Amino acid sequence: MKKLLIIGAGGFGREVLGYALDIKRENRDWELYGFLDDNPDALDNYNCEYKVVGPIHDHIIQEDEIYVCALGDPKAKLKIGRDFKARGAVFANIIHPTARIGRTSVYGQGLIMCPYSIITENVKIGEFNTINLFSGYGHNAIAEDGCTLSSHCDVTGYAYLEEGVFLGSNVSILPGVRVGKYSRIGAGSIVLKNVPAYVTMFGNPAKVIC
Rank of each mutant, 00 (worst) to 15 (best):
Y33F: 14
L43F: 06
Q109M: 12
P196N: 11
G180E: 03
E121I: 10
I56E: 00
K124S: 13
A92H: 04
D73I: 14
V90Q: 08
N93S: 13
G110R: 07
A86V: 01
G164F: 08
G54R: 01
G203N: 04
H139N: 15
D38V: 00
Y33E: 13
H96Q: 13
M201I: 14
L133Y: 10
T156E: 07
G18S: 12
G180P: 07
E127A: 14
N122M: 13
N170P: 00
H152A: 13
E121R: 09
Y182M: 12
L71I: 15
F84R: 10
L21P: 10
A89C: 08
S135H: 10
Y19V: 15
V16W: 02
G126H: 07
G102D: 13
E49D: 11
R184F: 09
Y50P: 01
Y50F: 15
L36E: 05
H59K: 05
V53I: 07
A42L: 08
T130G: 00
H139A: 12
P97M: 07
G168K: 06
G164H: 09
P196Q: 10
R103M: 07
A42T: 08
L192H: 09
L71H: 04
M201Q: 08
G164M: 06
I56H: 02
V208N: 02
N132A: 13
I94S: 10
E144I: 03
D83P: 01
H57R: 09
S117D: 08
V155K: 01
F166C: 04
E162H: 12
I7S: 00
I61N: 05
N194F: 06
D29P: 00
N93F: 04
G203T: 03
R82P: 03
K207M: 14
S105P: 12
M201H: 03
V208T: 15
L174Y: 14
M1D: 05
